[in-house]
Amino acid sequence: MPETLISDLNRADVFSSLKEGQFELILGAFSARLASQSPELVDFLFDVYRDVPANLELQEVTDIALNVRPPNVFRKYLRPQVIPDPGFKVPAVPLPKKMAPLSLEMGMNLSVALKCCRFLTFHAGAVANENGGVLISGASGSGKSTLTTALMQEGYRLFSDEFGLLSLDKAEINPYPRPVSLKGNSISVVRDMVGAEWVSKSIMNTPKGEIAYRRARRSDIEQANVPAPVKLILFPSFAENISPRAKKLTKAETIMRLIESATNYKLLGEAAYKALTDMVVGAEAYDITYGDTEECMQMVRDFAGEAGL
């Protein structure tokens, strides 16, 4: 059966499917069942997720079930707010109704980070070309999303700007091309880099400040079931007005850092240990400090070349 993309669907049908909790989003490593009463969410899906396959009625068991809903019945009327409810007990901060898209993104991230057992999950951006993948591991503010976007501009496929999903039986990462989340200054950097039409309108005054999303390309989504072997691992950190420098990391240093960045390492035990160490054997790793994206990219191009990408 040919896939139906969100852009092929009728807006009213999508909204009624969401209201009934029947809306199914099919994207790479995970399918998600979404429920919501929020028209803001419908707008967001038609903008940022427009090239993603979807069903108006549930076709299969989904990996993620997420309800973007008011925190309680009274809240719905008093001060309209939403929280992501992934169906398991997790604390979530209510957000104003207009921030429903952020609530959706946070909820899907929570579901993957906390409940995914099929992959070893790194808090990392990931991209790949035909020769292999790049993992970009870093905390919030390290420039993960900006570098992920910059590598997309160089022809790499988007896997994710948030999760490196490593298979447990081979050293391959798996795509989950959700939109790239941009905060603060990186929004204008990325708008200039890729063109404003690829970036959603900003959501202002969120708990994370100004937020916008860079849409995944149709080609990223079409290849969302094609994994890639990891060849290059980057640990960037961003600081204003700093000249770029890089240090090649030993395998041992790389393993130590990645264990700390994996959200389910302890949960998966021996399988995670083996998958992680196997991956590091086949990859080169660098610590990068930079203050300018293009200067950083010059180094990354060299490292990618050396790693056979």
């Binding site: 929280i83 604390p91 979530a92 901060v93 993104e105 946070m106 991230n109 929570l110 980070a113 994370k208």
Partner: peptide, 27 residues
């Protein structure tokens, strides 16, 4: 504390910012 963060994230509850940062730590 978690309940308070849900009911009123800007309240004067001792430690509210700590709890909110935990509740927000992903995403």
């Amino acid at each position: 504390s978690a309940r308070q963060a849900d009911l009123s994230p800007n309240s004067s509850w001792p430690g509210i910012s700590c709890i909110v940062s935990i509740l927000n730590y992903l995403g």
